[in-house]
Design a protein around this nucleic acid. Structure first.
Length: 296
DNA sequence: AGCTCGACCTGCACGC
DNA sequence: TGCGTGCAGGTCGAGC
């Protein structure tokens, strides 16, 4: 699922449902996801109050009143489902989580949080590429998985001169360079394709080739601007969808979004006046979608 | 040092 | 219907 905009949408949804609340029950149904859960994982979270939710790259950091941070990555297929209490309409202490039953499955529900107000939050992840870890809050941003990650593309440090510096002399194709989390944090396969399309840049082109000897070229500037807007647009779409969608079935993360090129192989190029078609190629083992006519 | 690729998992869409 | 194949929004670490 998740690239930066989806993770940000999930972060906001979790904060809305969980911040300020105590975890009164925590069920951990397997040994781990991508990595084993720490031995004291459950003990450190059970009874703790969740204070605030941050995002770094595609990671979510949930800080507790015990000076811990719960580190979460959704991998490819991680999802959170929020089930508001539907009781106690039918009884003083009974809460019905019938939405979960309506959705069936549950086979991949790995971690279940029960909060003091009766909300239940379920993490499910069929492929189990996601991860959760618990770490002291002060060191959370220096966690081994976060150390070395590049700048936030929506932050002040993501500038044309930064990108030019990191791309200079780089022979890897633009596609691979933008997927490299050590350079820019949070881009994934979809938004790299989309940002390159908006910029009119070929994903096959060497990253260093858009850098002028002096520094940031117009192409670098355009790419930086387009990366920002493609992410902001997606967050806006997720945010607007979040309200309705989360009310319908409690799920956070996926939302309806139109892409210009991603997963549109063979379709006409959406650029007005362009006669080209969207092409699919494979770069470092992953699909790239682009229009050869307008992306140079 | 920089880059590519396999590995980690399950589910789903497709063609035969 | 069943089976094999290829594909999926990520990323770590081995190996060139």
């Amino acid at each position: 699922m998740p690239e930066l905009p989806e993770v940000e949408t999930v972060r906001r949804g979790l904060a809305q449902a969980m911040a300020g609340q105590r975890i009164v029950g925590l069920e951990v149904r397997r040994d781990g996801l991508r990595f084993p859960f720490p031995a004291d994982f459950r003990q450190r979270l059970q009874g703790a109050t969740l204070e605030r939710f941050e995002r770094r790259a595609k990671y979510i950091l949930a800080y507790t009143d015990r000076r811990d941070a719960l580190l979460i990555h959704l991998g490819m297929s991680g999802r959170f489902t929020i089930l508001p209490p539907t009781g106690p309409a039918e009884g003083p202490t009974t809460f019905y989580y019938n939405q979960a039953q309506a959705q069936g499955s549950g086979a991949h529900d790995h971690v279940v949080f029960d909060l003091e107000d009766g909300t239940r939050v379920i993490y499910s992840d069929p492929r189990r590429f996601g991860l959760m870890d618990i770490t002291p809050a002060e060191q959370a941003r220096e966690h081994r998985l976060l150390r070395g990650i590049g700048v936030e593309p929506l932050g002040d440090d993501f500038t044309p001169s930064y990108l030019a510096e990191r791309f200079r002399d780089k022979k890897a194709p633009l596609k691979a360079a933008l997927l490299d989390q050590r350079i820019v944090a949070g881009l994934g396969n979809i938004y790299v394709c989309e940002a390159l399309f908006r910029s009119g840049l070929s994903p096959e082109r060497a990253a260093g080739s858009i850098v002028r000897s002096k520094g940031a070229s117009p192409q670098v500037r355009a790419l930086v601007a387009n990366i920002r807007t493609v992410l902001e647009d997606a967050i806006a779409a997720g945010g607007s969808t979040l309200r309705d969608y989360a009310q319908v079935n409690g799920e956070l993360g996926y939302f309806q979004h139109r892409f210009d090129v991603y997963d549109r192989e063979g379709k006409p190029c959406p650029r007005p006046g362009c006669k080209g078609a969207v092409e699919r190629i494979v770069q470092s083992g992953r699909s790239t979608f682009f229009c050869r006519t307008c992306q140079k």
